[in-house]
Simulated assay, not measured.
Amino acid sequence: MAVGARSGRDEGEERPDDAVGHETEEEGAEAEKPRSFWKELPLLIGIALLLALLIKTFLVQAFSIPSDSMQNTLQRGDRVLVDKLTPWFGSEPERGEVVVFHDPANWLAGEPTPEPNIAQTILSKIGLMPSADEKDLIKRTIAIGGDTVECKKGGPVVVNGKALDEPYIFPGNSACDDFPFGPITVPKGKIWVMGDHRQNSQDSRYHQQDSTQGFVPVKDVVGRAVVVAWPITRWATLPVPDTFDQPGIGKQPPAPLHSPQASGAGTAGVTPAALGLVGAVPLVMWRRRRLTKGRTAR
């Protein structure tokens, strides 16, 4: 009987196990609530900035055009996107490509360089503002290593014996009447560059007395400009002109997948930042789903 009475009391009592189970369900219900957007926002911003930095460094970078040396192909104030990926795989500039390159021999001497503040310096590193201290130029590749290039007064530019038809030259300009040159053989690992606004571009022609003899080392090339991205009304691709495909001038590679007075090209960087934000959103959403699933499982 004592045993029976004890059993009856056990059925009526709240067991510690029941209380523990009840508390766990309540905690689980609370844990299933996702974190608020504002709590996730710092993570979203951090990932976006990191992705923007990686994109700017290895994939694509935006540059602004501050001068008139590439008119009418490029206008002052245009933003161009530069492919920085293919050079990592050994690709070198080809004839006809518009390229951005580091100042090879102080071509930009005398150009004003504004002093950035701390905020501008930090934001330029991640591609959110133009960089004030980067000295880059943008020109068209006319000849590459091993080519012979020349231009006589009144005549066209001639590469490997083939005259170039250059419809991209600024209207009213001659091919080289302001500064005839050549014949010149371009050394291996170098390129010969000229601006499309021939009478307003201090390019390879004007720097033959410099340490690089007017040539741009391939190692100094940042990448190829592939598209005018801004302003929207100026959107256009920057393909290789047909004249560089004429037989005998040299073998041209297949088209890429993305299908001045020396002009500096300061980093605009808006596009890497935007791409970084786009890439960060799915990562943060994936993380939120993982956290929610994990809490529900408990």
Rank of each mutant, 00 (worst) to 15 (best):
M1H: 12
G4W: 15
S7V: 07
R9N: 07
G12I: 03
E13W: 01
E14Q: 09
E14L: 14
D17I: 11
D18E: 15
A19S: 08
A19D: 10
G21S: 10
E26H: 13
E27Y: 08
G28T: 05
G28H: 07
A29E: 14
K33T: 14
L41C: 05
L41T: 15
P42C: 07
L44W: 06
I45T: 10
G46A: 15
A48C: 07
A48N: 06
A52N: 06
L54S: 07
L54E: 01
K56D: 14
A62H: 12
M70R: 04
V80Y: 10
K84A: 11
T86D: 10
F89Q: 09
S91C: 06
R95A: 03
R95S: 11
V98Q: 03
D103N: 04
A109P: 00
G110M: 08
G110K: 02
T113V: 15
E115V: 14
P116A: 01
A119F: 12
I122S: 11
S124N: 08
I126C: 09
P130I: 09
S131T: 11
T141F: 02
A143C: 04
G145T: 07
G145H: 06
G146I: 11
D147G: 14
D147W: 02
V149S: 08
K152P: 00
K152V: 14
V157I: 13
V158K: 10
V158Q: 07
N160W: 09
G161Q: 09
G161Y: 03
A163W: 00
A163L: 04
Y168V: 00
I169Q: 01
N173M: 01
A175D: 15
A175T: 05
F179L: 14
F181D: 06
P187C: 04
K188T: 13
K190I: 02
W192L: 04
V193D: 02
M194V: 01
M194Q: 09
Q208M: 13
Q208A: 12
Q213D: 12
V216I: 15
V216F: 07
K219C: 01
K219R: 14
V222C: 01
A225C: 13
V226M: 11
V227P: 03
A229G: 02
W230C: 04
W235V: 14
W235T: 15
V240H: 09
T243C: 02
G250W: 02
K251F: 04
Q252K: 13
P253T: 02
P256N: 00
P256C: 02
H258S: 04
P260C: 06
Q261E: 12
S263L: 00
T267H: 01
G269K: 09
V270D: 08
P272D: 09
G276E: 09
G276L: 11
V278T: 08
G279Y: 02
V281S: 05
M285K: 12
W286V: 12
R290E: 12
T292E: 13
R295M: 10
